[in-house]
Amino acid sequence: MTIHSIEIAGIRKKFGEQTVLDGIHLNVAKGSVLALLGPNGAGKTTLIHILSTLFPPDEGNARIEGHDVVTARDEVRRLISLTGQFAAVDEVLTGYENLIMMCRLSGLSAAQARAQTAELLKRFDLEGAAHKRVKAYSGGMRRRLDLAVSLVVRRPVLFLDEPTTGLDTVSRRTLWDMILQLKQQGMTILLTTQYLEEAELLADEIAVLNGGHIVASGTAAALKARVGSEVIELRSSSDEVIRTIPTDGSVQHVRHTLNEIAALYPADSTITLRKPSMDDVFVALTAPQQSKEASLA
């Protein structure tokens, strides 16, 4: 019995001279959500493509529910659903036609396809636009259709590549709710994102990918603990953040820090003591070496 839906061991991938993934090890527990967080070009999409059987890794291996993504490609394809970075729906067809097409390709009969399509249109709030061509859809509607298409049949593992990139706040929240519902139904979800807020809200665990390596992984709380338990935030009189300094929050350390910086900044600067945010973690973990030392000092 597998407790991990996704097991990744030592994956390396080069494109030409450029090493994109340089030894990735990662497991995703069955029924959990893992957010792969990283800047543009970190290799998030490459990893998703390897896991979803689009191309093999140069080295290492990965298993989905125990099946190798290279040697047991056909089995893996029955277990996964990929929602790519750009809404992977047919623009020329209507939303209804897209869903019917995917239902039929997934092995549903014509009658089952119609029933499932009606249900999904309703669930994803697309009934009104069902017979409009996707070309006329807004970004949020496209993404909802994209997600609906991924769910035409129940597959235990879902890959979502930057599901909310480019969406407005309202659409993003709607999509988050929908992803959380899927999580409650027990799907294993691996999603990539550049947004810390999104990772923190949706994921049980977060893995930070940078420069081809997983530089940190764990729960949001555990990652934040790596930066320090508190952060001193120094603001100018115009309320701009001038500097953030990690601290353990003890009277001694805070006083020591304030003594050190008091002379460096205008007297009307203000300070706040707050819990570290995912942004602090992200900056600390993905910044180039020198500034990493600086921000962790």
Partner: peptide, 10 residues
């Protein structure tokens, strides 16, 4: 992007 979806289906 749709081609990636088709390719990852059985």
């Amino acid at each position: 992007g749709i081609i990636d979806r088709f390719r990852t289906m059985p």
